[in-house]
Amino acid sequence: MDRIKVATVWLGGCAGCHMSFLDLDEFLIDLAGRIELVYSPIADVKEYPEGVDLCLIEGAVCNEDNLELLHKVRARTKVLVSFGDCAVTCNVTSLRNYLGAANVDQILQRAYIEAADTNPVKPGLEGIVPRLLPKVRPVHDVVPVEHFLPGCPPSAPRIKAFFSNLLDHTPALSGAQLKFG
């Protein structure tokens, strides 16, 4: 059987979910026999390829780059998995939402000027730093998503269970395997 093509992407999140993925330890070796990692922040691939079977998405949709990449991912992938709380619920990234959509600039001001210990400067270079969206949104609010694997981060055993289920064609997680936070 051909190995399935798997990608992982990193939107607005802390990379903790990817770290947890690496915590799969020796299962990664089993996995390597069944999947081919075609795109990931932990693999140096510049362009998200066509014809991906499965993509794990970490992080919420926070800026214009996230949005653009996500649409590309959806168009080129069969099955999307919202991977971790940020992708599923927006989690900590959404803490800026209640400041209101109109306050994106103030948020940068607060984060990069007022809270800066040294060298206060706002990241505003057009074309280099992507612009923030007015509101952080969970992945499924932007594109259809097939599976949800919440957790902050999802623990390695849960990621393993999820993969095992998925590769054995019994996809969804049962309640006992669910975990937020």
Partner: peptide, 12 residues
Amino acid sequence: ELHAAPPLTAKA
């Protein structure tokens, strides 16, 4: 719809 949901049979 920007992305029609893919048929659910297209499981990996």
